[in-house]
Each structure stands twice: as C-alpha cells, then as structure tokens.
Design a binder for these strands. Sequence first.
DNA 1: ATTATTTATTAAGCTTACTTAACTTTGTCT
DNA 2: AGACAAAGTTAAGTAAGCTTAATAAATAAT
Lengths: 220, 220
Amino acid sequence: MNSISVENFLKNVFTLKYDEGEKASTSNLSVRLGISGPAITDMAKKLAAKDLLIYEPYKELQLTDAGKNVAIKVIRRHRIWEMFLHQVLDLDLTEVHNEAELLEHQTSDNLLEKLDEYLNFPEFDPHGDPIPQADGSIIKHKNAIKLDQLSNGDKGTIVRLIYADEEVQQLFEHYKIETGASFKILKVFKLDKSMEVDLNGNKIHLSQTIQKRIFCKIIE
Amino acid sequence: MNSISVENFLKNVFTLKYDEGEKASTSNLSVRLGISGPAITDMAKKLAAKDLLIYEPYKELQLTDAGKNVAIKVIRRHRIWEMFLHQVLDLDLTEVHNEAELLEHQTSDNLLEKLDEYLNFPEFDPHGDPIPQADGSIIKHKNAIKLDQLSNGDKGTIVRLIYADEEVQQLFEHYKIETGASFKILKVFKLDKSMEVDLNGNKIHLSQTIQKRIFCKIIE
DNA sequence: ATTATTTATTAAGCTTACTTAACTTTGTCT
DNA sequence: AGACAAAGTTAAGTAAGCTTAATAAATAAT
C-alpha cells in the first residue's frame, strides 16, 4: 500500500498538471505540499524507483500510467467524500475540502463504492470538480472554458472552481463565487487582463490568476 | 496533535483495562497492537514524558486523566463511525470495525458532532458498546452482566459484544451471536466452566473466554 | 531457596519522511 | 559570451516508529 505522503505527492503532481496546467516542478510541489525542495527530490526518486513517475534531474516530473491511476483513485476518494460531507452531513463548502483531505487516505474500496452508491453515482463534486469514475475515466464539463477566455459583455454560469489553496478558497467564499452562479463580464482591462464582473448583482474585480481558477459556460 | 500510533496505543490501554478487565502489560499490548515488546516499552516511555500515562519499569501501565481523555475521544470517534457505517451506509457488522479503525484518526471535532447529530446522538454502537458522550462520560447498560455469571436455565438477551480480535469476530458472525438475540442456558459444565446455550433455536457451546465477551440482561 | 521460565527492558539498527546548509545546473539579462 | 539569479540537487542530520538480539527482572516450579 502507498503511504499518505506518497498518495498526496502523486495527487498533487496530477492536479498541478491536469487541473491547473502548471508545471510539476520541485518548487511548485514544494509550495503545494508544504515541504522543502530536497524532500520533493527525495520522494521523486523513490517513486521513480517504484515506476510511479519518471524522474530526470532538472526535468519536469511525469506520471506513469501506474502513478496516474493512484492519483486518480485518491482524487476519486477525495471528491466523493466532499460530496458526501456536503450533501448528507451538510458541512459547508469551505470545510469539506480539509475533511476530505484526511478521509481520502483511509477509505477502502468497499466503503468508497457504498458512498458512491448512496450518492447515486455523482459526476461532479460540490465545487464542480469531476469525480473520476470507478474505471478511472474523468467526465468533462461540456463546452466549459476558463473565465479568462471571455470578453466584454459575455454572460455565463460558473460550473467549476479550482480550490488550489486556503487563500483562493477564502476569496471564493468572500465574494460568494460558487458553482451555478450567473455572471456578466462588465469590462476587461487590457493592462493586466484583470476584469470586472457582475456576479448576482455584485460588481467584483478578478485578476487573471483567479480567472484561471473559474470554469464557466457561456449563455448565448 | 497525537499521531495515529499514539492514539491507538492509548485506546488499547484503555479498552484492555476497562472493557476487558485485562492487565495493560507489555505483552498484552504487543499482541493487541501487533508490534514488538520493545516498541511497547519505547512508546510507553514517550507517552509518560507527555504525561499521558504513568510508566514504571515492570509495572502495569496507568493512564493519567489526560491519557484517558485522549483514549475516550478516539473510542467515541470509532463507535460513532461504526454506527454511521452500519446504519446509514449499510455496511455489515464484520466490516464496520476495520473501517472505523482507520476513520477514527481522521475525524475533526466538527465532523464528529455532525455525524453524532445525524445519528440523533446514539448511546450504543451496533455491537452494543457504549458511545462515550461529548463530555467524556460513558453510559453503562443497566443490570448487564457477562454470560459467565449465569446458571442452568437462565434466560436473557444479548446487549453487548466485545470484539477483541479477528477470531472472536468470526466466531460471533458464524454462530449469529448478535445484540438483541435471546438465549437460554442449557447446561454449565463445572469442568471448564464452558456452557451450552440455546440461541434462537440453535444449540451452541461457549468457552469461558467467549462468555466473558458477551454482556446480557436476564429475563425474569 | 534455588532454578527455570516467562516477561520486560536495553542496545543497536532500519525505514520513512522530513530538515538545513552547501553546491550545481539552468535560464535570463545585458 | 559572461555574470547572475533562480531552481534543483547533494550531503548530512533528525524524529517517529518500528525491528531483532542480548540481557535483566519478576514470577512460577521444584
């Protein structure tokens, strides 16, 4: 069995790359996992020896299929727990992530499938993140794009939010940015590509970094 | 925060002593925790340094109040999870223990109270074990005694089963020994204090060791 | 009471998952 | 191209939680 550290490592390589489009570099992982650079290099070598990823000094980490499978399973457990905690136990969106972060490493296959069944096999979690299916496949939102692709006057609804860290989470919470919310782009500033958005009647200003963490669908 | 190893250690000192009436000795703990004797001594010294228990070489371990509180909290989390897994997710009695064994270490106070509330503040788990309350108090079954106290002809119902290890668990499962079941003592053998019992129409033979793991109430 | 046996402890060593300090490689800037 | 900053790696060391082998204390048996 893989340890909690190993599971978290692989999960973060995966989400960094595939959810956020960032480089799976030593420094990015160091920040994400809250451990030192050398600890990242160390772990990368260990996991390479187990064929869970490909490590070449000074190059970006690459998950192998085996590594991807582990990552996807951890993400599945995480998102099913989030859904369960939110829908069944009524924990709010700011809490579910941290609780799921712990539970995701202590969930047997049997328990996981019971939870999935209880929830009636959901496809997306409360943040709009896709829940990897039992076979490892990941369903995508159709026609969803990141907010930074929109222009003046565009209207849409939010379908997914990327909760990378505590601060982003607080910002979403503070401005009531949540899946299902409708918005209109009021103005895009060419200077720094920030934009002003009307969200349920409130005017809010979003940097490009934040825009990239918000997936939406355009309403024609 | 206490590590998983520390939580398990304190929990087992507690249950060994207060649930099973056994000595909290190095060898008993070694068997229970599945680790070597020296590992027990090591941990005992560490926890003594943290004032969670009193360690004197060659003497039985004694939990301090602080140590008891940690143990009781872990037991509370364990039993609430068992109840939840059984009642809400429909896992069977043989599964809930092992799942709860993992989840008990990854449950925040907030989540725990949500689970407790969802279950409507139960007092006993599916094995009949008392669930320590939020204030640390432990409600006892009234007038419950262990099976080994009964005599020929006594009738009663099972209120609680002590699931010490995998084997006992299997035995309970195999003979359909479960809380709520009615029984009658057919014969007590003086030789080894074993007894023959009629349980829901089946004749079963129980050693004294097993009798001590079954709590019941007499029906007059 | 002495011996034998069980039980517990000490000693030495291992793995995992980290740390900081020093050094090396890579990429950028002029 | 050379210098420099940023990013990554190597080296050495730590703490937790284990292990086995050897030793000592407590308990039971004769």
